[in-house]
């Protein structure tokens, strides 16, 4: 049953954030800001850029290694959402047919270049965002957002999303199982039934929301989610932020691939 496996997968992302490594201990605000800067730097490149993007893989690879996050897990997640990126770029090779010279007289259409560029940008941004959550935990990111002055109502929404995602998925799982148990063969699995299931789920969610709100009011809720978490910028955070900034700057404004290539050439030739 695919639904069940997806469910435990999300739980796994959650458990990765319980580890205690250098990356996990960094201040969530610092990680968040560096991640955002990374994303903006990556998408700031022109649509035909490929080689200048490659060095950026250093950042997710470093996070993964230092944070002891399994590579296959991130890879699977990236592949899972990759259809979105593929469908955005798939027609580029047909539509953008200008010829581009690569080397030794070998040419391809400009569309292929932009398609590959989209895929690289997608892999970089999605894996970095996943790694942020895997090393910070979702609530950690939320509290960091609150400290960075995001309005309380958005942060509360995100926190609830995280808290009740599991509850709702369990609810869905129960409904789907109940249906499978009483539908033999293909009967009872058509679209109309799915629509009704979604309706039931929605009504249950609304009722639950009401009960939760009641529980919150009973405990003096007045609009903001209070927290006891204290964030403190330590020397490790400063070191991390500065080196990340330096790397981003170098990779953005200097042709790092070319420099490295010439260096290797110099050594071997």
């Amino acid at each position: 049953m695919t639904f069940d496996t997806q469910y435990y997968n999300i739980g796994f992302l959650d458990q990765l954030s319980y580890k205690d490594t250098f990356v996990h201990r960094l201040d969530p605000r610092v990680k968040l800001v560096v991640t955002l800067l990374f994303l903006f730097t990556v998408i700031s490149f022109s649509k035909y850029e490929i080689f200048a993007l490659v060095p950026f893989f250093l950042y997710p690879v470093l996070l993964m290694t230092l944070g002891e996050i399994p590579f296959m897990f991130i890879l699977k997640k990236v592949l899972l959402v990759s259809p979105f990126a593929v469908f955005i770029g798939i027609f580029n090779p047909l539509l953008d047919s200008g010829q581009v010279f690569i080397f030794n007289g070998f040419t391809i259409s400009a569309g292929w270049l932009s398609f590959i560029s989209i895929l690289i940008k997608f892999t970089l941004t999605v894996s970095t965002a996943l790694l942020l959550i895997a090393t910070t935990s979702f609530p950690g990111v939320c509290h960091a957002l609150r400290r960075l002055k995001l309005p309380a109502i958005f942060v509360s929404q995100l926190l609830f999303l995280y808290r009740y995602l599991f509850v709702l998925m369990e609810e869905t799982m129960r409904i789907v199982r109940a249906r499978n148990m009483r539908s033999f063969g293909e009967r009872g699995k058509d679209m109309r039934i799915y629509v009704r299931l979604a309706g039931t789920l929605f009504l249950r969610a609304v009722e639950r929301a009401e009960r939760i709100y009641h529980a919150m009011l009973s405990r003096g809720f007045q609009g903001d989610m209070p927290t006891l978490k204290h964030f403190q910028i330590k020397s490790g955070d400063v070191f991390f932020a500065l080196s990340a900034l330096a790397l981003l700057f170098v990779f953005r404004f200097f042709p790092a691939t070319e420099i490295l290539g010439r260096f290797v050439q110099g050594v071997f030739l």
Binding site: S137, F138, P139, C142, L159, F160, Y162, R163, Y164, V167, R208, R211, I212, H214, A215, M216, L217, S218, R219, G220, F221, Q222, M225, P226, T227, L228
Partner: peptide, 30 residues
């Protein structure tokens, strides 16, 4: 609401914060 504490039937509705500690701290912080 300060005088009366209500424990609801379904604990999932009662515990809405990300960790146990934050949940128990929610009321006193408010």
């Amino acid at each position: 609401r300060r005088k009366v504490g209500i424990v609801f039937q379904n604990s999932d509705d009662q515990l809405f914060m990300p960790t146990v500690y934050e949940d128990v701290a929610f009321g006193p912080l408010n």
